[in-house]
Simulated assay, not measured.
Amino acid sequence: MNIDIDQFVERYVAVWNEPDPVARRSAIAALWAEDGVEVIESAEFRGHDELEARIAAAHEEFVRDAGFAFRAAGDATGHHDVVTFTTHMVPAGGGDIAWTGRAVVVLGPDGLIRSDHQFTVPTGDIRSTVDDFLRRLAAGDPDRIADLFAERVDWVLDWPAGGHPAVPWIRPRSTRADVAEHFRMIAEFHVPGEATGPAPRVLVDGNEAAVLGDIRQTVKATGEPYTALCALHLVVEDGLITRYAVYEDSLTVAEALSGS
């Protein structure tokens, strides 16, 4: 596969947000083969004319009139001639995910889409819950993050039982209120708006998910940035996180906060 998969997905998602009909038509021609087809549960759309009508109608209904925007979930993967990825429809000004879709795209030798099968991900699906958690985590609102957790949480930390004096938020937690306090304390010790990094990778198996990425923060007291590898193990039941296990480079975090 001689394409940049993430770039391809960004181009795909951008078509659905494009307000200009001429630019939209050009983008469709650059993505789909002339006889390319999109298949949804209730219909199929073949060729550039049908695809243009389909995407224009979706844009008018959801983007122009309802104020939503389509976003890539950052989970694109593929091999040979197949690419699969998740997209979300969210309020353009920020808010909860209104719809999640999963696309399975088959490309021709020229890199253009031959077929595009789109599946709606049911509300409460673990992938949707994890993506919503990551989005709320990036937004930095502790109470909205905690709303995604069950009232009682199995909280697991890869730290010594005694914790570390420079990292006071590392302590036993068991309730939704504890979760909100945890993320509120993290925010108090770091410069707001300076958490960066690439989108984490998410692996799902049944009602469990592994989130692989890194923590990139700037310490408020010193202005020093740091990066620490991190992995999360989440269990989701009835759309809520019931188990939250954190495995991180705790030495880097402790040294950054203590000024070592």
Rank of each mutant, 00 (worst) to 15 (best):
E237H: 10
H233S: 11
I241S: 01
T84R: 12
W169L: 01
R102A: 07
R176S: 14
E181D: 14
I186Q: 11
A166F: 07
A228Y: 10
A146K: 00
V106C: 04
E224T: 12
R173G: 10
D214S: 14
A254M: 06
H88W: 12
A66Y: 13
L212H: 05
T222Y: 06
R54Q: 13
R176G: 13
R216W: 13
D205C: 14
E18M: 13
V90W: 04
G162K: 05
F149Y: 07
R46E: 08
G206P: 02
S115H: 05
A180G: 10
E60Y: 12
N17P: 00
H79R: 08
R216Q: 15
A58H: 11
R24C: 01
A14E: 14
G197V: 13
R152G: 03
W159D: 07
E188Q: 12
E52S: 13
V236Q: 07
C230V: 08
H164G: 07
L137E: 04
A58Y: 06
A53V: 11
T86C: 07
T123G: 03
V13D: 03
A57Q: 11
L212K: 10
A30M: 05
V106Q: 05
V204F: 13
P91W: 09
I126Y: 03
F85S: 10
A23Q: 14
A23S: 15
I3C: 11
F68W: 08
A139S: 02
H80L: 15
A166P: 05
P122E: 02
D110C: 03
R201I: 14
E50K: 09
M89E: 09
A245F: 00
V15G: 01
G108P: 00
E248N: 07
Q217M: 11
R173C: 11
D178W: 12
G193L: 02
V211D: 11
D141A: 03
V90Y: 04
P172F: 05
A199G: 00
T218A: 11
Y247C: 06
R173N: 13
T129G: 01
E208A: 14
R24P: 11
A69K: 08
T77H: 11
T129K: 01
T120V: 05
T86Y: 12
L229C: 07
P192S: 00
F149L: 01
P91D: 08
M185D: 10
V130T: 03
P200S: 10
D4M: 07
P21A: 10
A180Y: 07
G259D: 08
G259T: 05
D4G: 15
G47D: 06
E208N: 13
L229G: 14
A27S: 13
A66F: 02
P91S: 05
V39M: 08
L51V: 11
H59C: 01
R152V: 05
E50V: 04
Q118A: 04
E50P: 09
L51D: 13
D158C: 02
